[in-house]
Amino acid sequence: MAASACATGLRGSLVSSFHGTWGTSMMGEDYPALIQSVPRYVRVGPPVRSPPCMKNVNEGKGIFAPAVVVTRNIIGKKRFNQLRGKAIALHSQVITEFCKAIGADGKQRQGLIRLAKKNGERLGFLA
């Protein structure tokens, strides 16, 4: 008898104030007010990304920039980029051979290649 009284008392204290169904609690009277309180500028979906900008910050600067721009205009952008790619590849090979000759490791070689790129930008070769 005492066990049933405890169970009944316990059950009585666990009664919630929830009256209704899940539908009325989720879509009840406050739902329209909640929807109107959300700002309209919130975008739902994946963020919009702008395309990456691959422009050279030193464009038009450097002692060789005018010659590079004139050459690009004369032979065309496509052909110019092909020649530039070949020149960069040859220069990287020269740096690699130099590193082999002096016994420099790959990390030092990469550092020299980065330095060559920075110098090329400053001088206007990458205009």
Rank of each mutant, 00 (worst) to 15 (best):
Y31N: 02
G85C: 06
G103R: 04
S13E: 08
V38Y: 08
R79P: 02
V44T: 11
N56K: 02
G76K: 09
R43N: 14
A87V: 13
I35P: 02
S50M: 06
A116D: 04
A87K: 13
C99H: 02
V38S: 03
S92K: 13
G12I: 07
V70C: 09
E59R: 07
Y31G: 00
L123W: 05
A65I: 00
A5Y: 10
C99K: 02
K86H: 12
N119W: 05
F64W: 04
A101N: 10
A7R: 15
I102T: 12
I88G: 01
R49M: 12
L10Y: 15
A101V: 07
S92P: 02
A104Y: 06
H91R: 14
I63L: 09
G20W: 04
A127N: 06
A67K: 12
V69R: 14
V94I: 14
A101L: 12
P52E: 02
M54S: 10
D30Y: 13
M1L: 11
K77H: 15
T71I: 10
G45S: 04
R122P: 00
F125S: 01
I95M: 01
E29T: 10
G60F: 00
T71F: 15
S92D: 14
G12Q: 15
Q93E: 14
E59W: 02
G106N: 15
Q108L: 11
M54C: 14
M1N: 08
Q110M: 08
S50T: 06
S16H: 08
E121C: 03
H91C: 07
P52W: 00
F80K: 11
H19M: 03
I74Y: 09
I75N: 06
Y41H: 15
K61S: 08
D105N: 13
L90D: 13
T8Q: 09
E97V: 07
A65G: 02
S92M: 09
S16G: 08
G111K: 08
L10S: 11
H91Y: 06
I95F: 01
A5N: 08
Q93C: 10
P39C: 04
G9L: 10
A2D: 11
V38A: 06
A116G: 01
G28R: 06
M1P: 09
N73Y: 05
D30N: 09
G124K: 00
R79M: 10
S25G: 03
H91M: 07
T96K: 12
I102W: 10
M54T: 10
G76M: 05
I74A: 05
N81F: 12
A2G: 07
D105I: 04
S13G: 06
P47T: 03
G28S: 01
I113P: 00
E29R: 12
V38G: 03
N56F: 01
Q93A: 12
